[in-house]
Design a protein around this nucleic acid. Sequence first.
DNA 1: GTTTCGCATCTTTTT
DNA 2: GATGCGAAAC
Length: 762
Amino acid sequence: MAHFLDELNDVQRAAVTTTEGPILVIAGPGSGKTRVLTYRIAHLIEKGAAPWEILALTFTNKSAREMKERIAGVVGNRAESVWAGTFHAIFARILRAEASKIGYSANFTVYDTDDTTSLIRTLIKEKNLDPNTYNAATIRTRISLAKSNLLSPTAYRGNVELQQQDLAAQRPYLADVYEAYVQRCRRAGAMDFDDLLFQLYRLFRENPDNVLDKYRKKFRYLHVDEFQDTNFLQYAILRQLVRYDGSAENIFAVGDDAQSIYAFRGATIDNILDFEKDYPRLQTFKLEQNYRSTHHIVSAANEVISNNRRQLNKTIWTDKNESRRIKLLKCLTDDEEARKVADLILEQKHRYHLPNSEIAILYRTNAQSRKFEEQLRRHNLSYKIFGGLSFYQRKEVKDLVAYLRLSVNPHDEEAFRRVINYPARGLSSATVDKLGQLAVERGLSLWDAMLLPELALSDRARKALGAFRKMVDAWSARARQDSAYKLASDIYRQSGLQEALKADTTTEGISRQQNAQSVLDGISEFSDTGLDAAGAIAGDDRTLAAYLQTITLLTDSDTTSDERDYITLMSAHAAKGLEFRSVFVTGMEDNLFPSYMAREEPNGLDEERRLFYVAITRAKEHLTISFAKTRYRFGQIRESKPSGFLSEIQIAHFEAVGGIGAGRNTAATDTYDQPRAAVSGNFTTPTRRNQTPKTAPPPPNFQPAPPDKIVAGSKVLHLKFGEGLVIAIEGPRDGKVATIQFYNDELPERRIVLKFAKLQIL
DNA sequence: GTTTCGCATCTTTTT
DNA sequence: GATGCGAAAC
């Protein structure tokens, strides 16, 4: 009967059929992780579990959708009742149902990153803090991290380590900003992404009997995908949900510590490592056979990841013993890189009959997509860029959505500020400032402050404000009963937005109209079918409020498109969980991949390495790695060196193609024939046959700098090791030790006592 | 009150 | 290279 179990190997089957108790599946890349997860759920249903007793939490809508589809493939439409979705989407759904218990309206707004940043910016201005030291994006990250670790503003203030960090960064008032931020979100009836977790935790903690218990009983089987990317808070909620009352603790977590790439967002491998401590009866399964990639790819990946210190013991292997090697593209410029990649794609398509959909170009930063886009267009290859500016971040879309949000929740401050005078209706910033000031004084939302008699305004402004309020009020009254689509299209018209967009008849203007229109189309589909924009079933709640809460949690890769056969362009992060027959990992240069930002983070380099690991393990058959000598960055041309990660791959896995410049058969492969020199070779000396000497003669104008002049971040020149970057300085005043990464060195970094070393600052 | 222009600033990854 | 912000022109 359960023939699908026959498609599994022994370990996979054991994991799938162990239905009770806590289970951890460590799943290497391409080891059938999704299959195990979906078959396990299918198996549970076949064995008689009700679909609605099953909860499956993922990180992206896409994988949730995929999972549902695959479960449906086995058990049919029963799959629809399984609670599968992202942490944020599922939690938002619960919060919406229980909002009143924590003092929120069911119509609460979800603030996205832009809203959050903009609110923080407002607060910094209100508090007269310097916006340079109090960088809104930095503060957003810190607040987010605090919430992810369950630290309230009060707890934040009491945390010695955090306080010291803030003091060191000259930001003593950060906790105040945090506190004000929380207050303002609450006043606006808004939750940010972290609140969807934080508030749920609070809801459960404060209502153990009437809320938590209900959900504990409801969800008999918990599943977590990408467990390595969960943060402390997510783990805490999972602990709340797993039943303790004598019955089995049915939590099934799947993850791979080697693919943890979201530490910057608060994810912690500790969750995997602590899992066993928290659940002594834990059963662990290791999926080590890679069914995806060929031998050279798997070996290269293993070699790279073995440089990381802290990891779970496992051996990924494959039986695909094809001889095809990894291609390395050395390029002079980023332009050339894009050209070579496009050319190679054409060649591969012909030679191996690769459809576009089996090809992906990956990069570290979204900004790198541009050059590839140009080249692919030149060759008439269809492509799709994921990430970057998503549909819902476009101005016209945000404007329309802001009006919709306001009609559902007039206290939404960010939506309010966005549209109060767009299209222009005679409400200047001076008026809004006055309103904002009064609102702060009285502790009210902007919407409520509008009614205060002491709001001193000109007659003209007062009239305009009154008209605005009346308009929004009328929408609010309809929000409860009217169809979402009817209301939304009326709002589009009555707000004046439609007219404003129509006035612009340029091509971009017309596309803006279309974008606004497609928001309305999406709402129409939602009210008709209950399908949200991600194609997921949102339940029976078809109000505008329900719709708005879903779209904030969407990203680009969730919007479905009609074009199917395209080449995929995305960041390495976005590629996690995907696979392609041919993968291009591009921009493999120092300070780009690994990112220069990673240097400042403890273990930052390890995380970058895991990211590289994720990138190369996306490839099934063809893996091409490229890097460029010069690249346009920060608005100017910069020189770069090949990524240090490349030298972690044994030369035997590479096949060399192309060379620096036009020399096709001459020196092209020279530097690659010698193991260590594979990529640590210095670009600045494009020698032909001779290797660059390891130590250059001292330049005549060498001038050592006094030790106290050298600080973290300094670029220095060392007589023996050459150029390097100072990562950290530590130790007592007269015994300072610098950790320096030398660009041209076999060691990743060296510790040097400044008193003795002679270093010139560059 | 509104628009436009120039300046500055910051560019890692995302639900 | 893109975006936001402030000042000056309209």
